[in-house]
Amino acid sequence: MSDYFLFVGLPYAALAIMLIGTILRYMNKGFTVSSLSTQFLEGKKLFWGSQSFHWGMMFLFFGHLIAFLFPKSVIAFNGDPVRLIILESTAFMFGLLSLFGIILLVIRRKNNKRVQIVTSKMDKVVFITLLVQIISGVWIAYFHRYGSTWFATSLTPYLWSIFAFNPDISVISTMPLAVKIHVISAFAIIGIIPFSRYMHFLVYPIAYIWRPYQKVIWNWDKNTIRIPDKWVKGVRSKNN
């Protein structure tokens, strides 16, 4: 019965909350959709933590997405043992990268006073869910290995059964504990998207990729502005 609650009830609750919550938040409190950068307060640990975490996460997210959308192709790719090892090691590498990143970010949150002050309760929830998610993921990769294939063969049908409104939990209920924790915390993360900084991945500024770069410069001569004769009366801006 608890399996029904965790692997049928929780996913639907989480997906519904995510869908409705994000729309409501975006429509009613659009300006709060942000992950409130703290780069201004502390930059060095953020650089290493954030870079490693986000690169790792991005590859892992799309890896999971590909295995979910194209399970047959993943099984075909993993058919050859050499390719299987290459894919597994690569995924493991990005898992370690994310783990390293999130640990640095947690340490930074905990030890830096300026960052502490802007840390909300929801941020702590975000960090705890992420730690659970990444540690269980790396654990699975190492102790229940070749997840890239068995995800495609056994978990993809479960996930599809959720989306087809015909949930089948026979496989997931026989999976090892780490896999269950990974799935439960994944849906928990989806459920708290509208209430937390997770929101920012839905509004990722993709236009950055093709937007021409902007260089911010002061358009005046550094020497001439020091000569008092050249001073001009400024124009007060109208929008401030």
Binding site: I85, E88, S89, T90, F92, M93, G95, L96, L97, F100, Y142, R145
Partner: peptide, 9 residues
């Protein structure tokens, strides 16, 4: 597999 992962990391 562990070694490959560490080297890549």
């Amino acid at each position: 597999f562990l070694h490959f992962g560490m080297i890549g990391f």
